[in-house]
Write a protein that binds this DNA or RNA. Sequence first.
DNA 1: GTACCATATATCAAAACGATATATCGATTT
DNA 2: AAATCGATATATCGTTTTGATATATGGTAC
Lengths: 181, 181
Amino acid sequence: MANERKIDMVILGLLSHEPLTGYDIKKRIDGAIRFFWKGSFGSIYPALNTMETAGLVTKESSSESGREKIVYAITPSGTAALTAWLQDSQAKNELKYETLLKLFFGGAVDKQTTIHTIEMFEQNVRQELELLKRYEQNLARVLEQQDHVYYYLTVTFGIETYEGYLRWCEKAKGVLLGNLP
Amino acid sequence: MANERKIDMVILGLLSHEPLTGYDIKKRIDGAIRFFWKGSFGSIYPALNTMETAGLVTKESSSESGREKIVYAITPSGTAALTAWLQDSQAKNELKYETLLKLFFGGAVDKQTTIHTIEMFEQNVRQELELLKRYEQNLARVLEQQDHVYYYLTVTFGIETYEGYLRWCEKAKGVLLGNLP
DNA sequence: GTACCATATATCAAAACGATATATCGATTT
DNA sequence: AAATCGATATATCGTTTTGATATATGGTAC
């Protein structure tokens, strides 16, 4: 019952759909997943190695088309490990927002500085939100296909929270400019 | 311009209000700050040691009342480091939500399992939201005092986003039960 | 043909996490 | 008075993750 390494579950989850190389996995993580999780090569490749030793994944070394390339596939034990993790409804959810940290200690600098930090955050959220809304529209069209529902729900989560962020940005700037709530 | 260790900034920010022991710092982080950042003894004590060597904090070793206790205070260079960080409006904001990860890979298990994961999340959010709203009410009363504004704004951020989470939970459960949007 | 970018694997130092060890102080219980 | 227990307090250790870098090849644009 030791703490499963989370990157293992991300990798197994991705491999449960299709065999992938370590590089492919990184691309997937940097795509839709990046809104709520991430992973670097420094964790992906070591994880693939230890999981291969443990028999959770297998190497399908394909050097057919010249280029060195190690394609990994999930094994039955890998599927079992993934399922066991998914069936445990406990989950650790953690926010790590440097913007809020800077806001919390805002008393040490002038208000204009803090407002600028909020504006940078706002700008970033707006960009990401636009992207998420485009995802949502594309997904809504193919929602009948089972597997897209899960993807769609993570996207709507992002939209709902990012819209909350924008509402808060307005309020926060108002409060800092002296309009007490 | 090297990547400042973030725990250093948390510690300096806390020490900018009052001298504290490592244990005190941990308690502060586990209080209001825990909604958007955290820190463990394993990072706090080493950080205090290196920052003392670097001259950003000083030991005010007080063994007045018997008990071994190392009280740290911020130095002028420490204040300078904190200010420099606060004035940099760039900030890394990162969500690490295991619940969303489990949702994303929900296709590998039955829907009831995924719904249960969402319900556990919902329950947790509801609890934290209640706590945050109590904070908000207490803070709203003393909002004229400058320094409370920053605390207040981090609390309202939490409330805004957590309310968004709850709205999403309802929607998500509906979608999983077949009520397409 | 060469410059450039995407693909691909791998490693390393630094940072953070989470658990544990050790010990003391104060309050409550027996 | 002794024992127990929880809060205070510092510190370290193994593991995980990050972020940067090294190395090299394939494809393509000029």
